[in-house]
Structure formats: C-alpha cells, structure tokens
Amino acid sequence: MHLNRHIKSKQRVADYGEVLTPPHIVNAMLDLVKQETERIDSRFLEPACGTGNFLIEVLRRKLEVVKKRYAKRQLDYERYAVLAVSSLYGIDILADNAEECRRRLYQTFDAPYTALFGDQAKAACRRAVRYILQRNIVHGDALSLKAVGENPQPIIFSEWSLVNGSLLKRRDFTFRKLLYSEESPDTLFDASKMLVSDRGRNSRPMSNFFPRRPQVTPKIYAYADTNPQYAGLLKVGYTTKSVQERVAQQYPTVRPGPLPYRIVLEEDAIRNDGTTFTDRDVHRMLRESDIKQEIIRG
C-alpha cells in the first residue's frame, strides 16, 4: 500500500490526523453491515467524512438497488435515488474535504442517472440532489457540534422524507439535540429520551431520526373466496397482523360449516436487502406481467 495515496500532506496528518481510508478497507467495513448499505432509506452519518470514501460506497450500493428495481420507470427511479442521497450525512473539519465529498457524491448520483435517461434526465432532479448534499455534508467540527467559521453556529441536519408525487418534506434538527438529552447532557444516543427540533417543535426520539428496523414482520398474503362466483380469483393483501386474523376480518359474519375462504399464500413482505414492500408493489408487478386484474365491488 502506498501511503501517499491516502494522505494529502504530512502537515494535514500532523494537524488533523487526516488519513483517507483505502477502498478495500471501506468495503470490508461496510460488508459488516451489508444489509443496511443496500437498504435505500437507511441513514448513515460519518462524523469525519474526509472526501467521502465511505459515503460514496454506501451511495453506490444503494443506487445499484434503485437501478435494479426502478430503472424502467424514470419517476420512481428519481424518487428513490434522491431518497438514497438524502439518507447520507457527513461532517468534516476541513472545508476542501466537505466540498470534495459533496462533488463526488453528486457525481456518484449523476453518472448512472445520465446513463439511464440521457436527455430525459431532469435539471430539477439534479438541483434537488445538489441542495440536499449542500445541507447534509457539513463543514463543521463533530466534537464541538458546531459549523466552522468566524461565528460558529450549531450543526443542523435535515431529515428528508418522501411525500406525494415527487415532493420531499424537510425537518431540521440540531446535531447536539440529536446526540444529547436535555435532562442528561452526557448521555449519547439515548433513544428513550425525547429530542426537540431546533425550531422548538416536532419532538421525537433519536431512534426516529436514525430509525431502527420495525419489530413487526409484515406479511403479503393471498386468499381465494369459496363462493363459486369468485372462482379463479385471488385477493392479494398486506398486513402487520397475523394473516389469519386479517382475512377473518373480511368475513365478519360467522356462519356454521367450513370457512368461506382459503389462504393460499403467506410470505414475509421483506426483500433480501431488508426493505419492505406492500400489496401495491405486488399489484404493480402483476400488471407489468400482463396479469389481468378484476375490480370486485361489494
């Protein structure tokens, strides 16, 4: 390994302890949490991000997942690619590192986007990514929890979430209040304590900003109604309850004799990368496979 490839100058090493992590170490470390690196909405914070070696590899992995799922539908690709970008956060004490990290992350987003959609790629989508990166990658000091400058202000991170269509919702939080409880300032990442937005509202626990995976296991199911008029039809559904309980709710009147339905499918609604899907995703795939869908009105 050539050390000069991983340092910018001996002075920066002496002043800031700056050594850029080589790709093989980045990949080995990220492979320890491989499932999370391939979950589109999982959030990563690198408090000494340098030029972005870790964040760029996480984004590359996320975008591979986005491409596999949504390459045929540009709007869906854009929504989830932007969501992948918005899930990455970084801090670096050196301004040139923060700027280079933003630039490299943008290039990592834009290269596959342009390759897939060419002239159809949208300037508005690119502007959104640049804006998100400007907010998510901060020139700051992770120890003082403040931005670097003549009048240092608290570091603020934005939570981004998808809403209807191509819109994003933003909520801002100070880094300090994401780390420390008001009652116990020396408690780090205490998810049991409530944290308050820097705007003084929208109280929420740290675990909601960097959320843990849900404890419940969602299910996809399909059942057949035994009524002859529905012969050959299956009802596909999604639930976080037991499938038996959910299907039974569709038949509130209890009658003697055999059940008026037969459950033919019950599977976890979780992909290999840990993300979940719903019956809407199943219906969309069925339509794309030219499977006829009938709307039954009761």
Rank of each mutant, 00 (worst) to 15 (best):
H6C: 01
K8P: 01
K10Y: 11
R12M: 11
A14M: 13
D15S: 11
D15P: 07
D15V: 06
Y16S: 04
L20G: 00
P22D: 00
P22R: 00
P23N: 05
N27A: 10
N27E: 08
A28I: 09
V33C: 13
K34W: 13
K34F: 14
Q35A: 11
T37E: 02
E38G: 03
R39K: 09
E46N: 04
E46Q: 02
C49R: 00
N53I: 02
R60H: 10
K62A: 06
Y70T: 04
Y70F: 15
A71S: 11
R73E: 14
Q74P: 03
Q74L: 13
L75P: 04
L75K: 14
E78N: 08
L83Y: 11
L88A: 03
G90N: 01
I91K: 03
C101T: 00
R103L: 06
R103S: 06
L105H: 01
Q107F: 14
P112A: 12
A115T: 10
L116C: 10
G118N: 14
A121I: 12
A121L: 14
A123Y: 08
A124I: 11
R127N: 15
R127T: 13
R135W: 12
I137M: 05
V138L: 09
V138Q: 02
V138I: 15
H139Q: 09
A142T: 14
S144Y: 08
S144R: 07
S144K: 07
L145T: 08
L145Q: 10
K146L: 11
V148N: 04
N151G: 08
I156T: 14
F157I: 05
F157C: 04
S158M: 12
E159H: 05
L162N: 06
L167P: 03
L167W: 11
L168T: 01
R171K: 13
F173N: 01
F175V: 03
R176W: 12
L195K: 05
G200M: 09
R201T: 10
R204L: 10
P205G: 05
M206N: 00
F210M: 10
R212P: 06
R213Y: 07
V216K: 09
P218V: 02
P218H: 03
K219G: 00
I220Y: 01
I220N: 02
Y221W: 09
D225Y: 04
T226G: 05
Q229A: 14
Y230A: 05
L233K: 12
G237C: 07
T240N: 14
S242M: 08
V243K: 04
R246K: 10
V247T: 04
P252E: 15
R255N: 12
P256Q: 11
P260R: 03
Y261G: 01
I263W: 08
I263V: 15
L265E: 00
E266G: 02
E266T: 09
E266A: 09
D268S: 14
F277E: 02
D281G: 03
S289E: 09
I291G: 04
I291L: 08
I291E: 05
Q293W: 06
G298N: 15
G298V: 14
